[in-house]
């Protein structure tokens, strides 16, 4: 396996890849700047579970990548090696039981283990949430995110609630429990940097927990088509220190009462 890693990671292959992409771009008159840059990949990870998702992705990428190379390689090899001029008479073979058992059983083992590994990560992310320090309610509507924090009484849906539009602030390192609702049609709460997505379904309350691991300014996206303003249903997520979060909460509370 390590030879494969060395091969894929080697500069010769990387250069060749970049060369191919650049050539393709130049032929089409496009800007080849991105071809050499490694930026076209996952956005920063800001949540405690994001690295597990990325890891799962990479595991699958490695497994499928190797299968991909083997199969495409074999296909090309057969097409060249067994072309008619090189092999005028084909073999009269109807099958081979043992080979077929092998390529049934091995993929079965691989996908079953992938399913088990995925289930473990999934159970962690979407199973019983850990104890939370903060509760937020997000109500989606065409085409805005209504964000609600509890007031000084610490309870949601009371007089002193703090209501915002498209602004979600979260304290770093704290577990926040998000209650997800919708007023009208289905929306989907998606913060790419959290690697998290959950549909906001009218009539249901979705629950999602998130623990940001470092401060940052990112955006939340609506990932389920919700009408003409769907593409513009953009919210802003600010992850800041617990103190900064508290003072922001205070300040917003004052502003709201003005």
């Amino acid at each position: 396996m390590c030879w494969a890693r060395r091969l894929v990671g080697s500069s010769a292959v990387r250069n060749f890849k970049a060369l191919l992409l650049t050539a393709y771009c130049l032929v089409l008159g496009a800007d080849p700047a991105w071809a050499g840059s490694a930026r076209v990949w996952f956005p920063d990870n800001l949540s405690s579970v994001g690295s597990q998702v990325d890891q799962m992705f990479l595991v699958i990428l490695w497994i499928t990548g190797i299968i991909f190379l083997l199969v495409e390689g074999a296909l090309l090899w057969f097409l060249i090696r067994y072309r008619q001029p090189a092999n005028p008479r084909a073999a009269y073979v109807h099958g081979c039981r043992s080979a077929e058992v092998i390529w049934t059983v091995i993929p079965a083992i691989i996908v079953t283990s992938l399913a088990f590994a995925s289930q473990r990560v999934w159970a962690h992310i979407r199973g019983t949430p850990p104890a939370h320090q903060l509760e937020v309610e997000i109500t989606a509507e065409q085409f805005a995110w209504n964000v609600r924090y509890a007031g000084p009484d610490g309870r949601l849906h009371t007089e002193d609630d703090l209501e915002l539009i498209n602004q979600l602030h979260l304290p770093v390192d704290q577990v926040a429990l998000v209650h997800l609702k919708s007023k009208d049609v289905i929306h989907s709460f998606f913060v790419p940097q959290f690697r998290m997505k959950l549909d906001a379904v009218p009539g249901l309350t979705g629950r999602l927990w998130v623990q940001p691991i470092k401060p940052g300014q990112v955006e939340m996206v609506c990932a389920e088509l919700c009408g003409l303003g769907h593409y513009r249903m953009r919210g802003y997520v600010t992850i800041e220190s617990a103190e900064a979060f508290q003072s922001w909460l205070e300040q917003t509370r004052v502003e709201q009462s003005l």
Partner: peptide, 18 residues
């Protein structure tokens, strides 16, 4: 009622006062 202009930075940019 105060308008929550920060819902869209393009809106907030155009206002200095509440």
């Amino acid at each position: 009622e105060r308008v929550k202009m920060d819902a869209d930075p393009q809106c907030a940019l155009q206002h200095t006062d509440a």
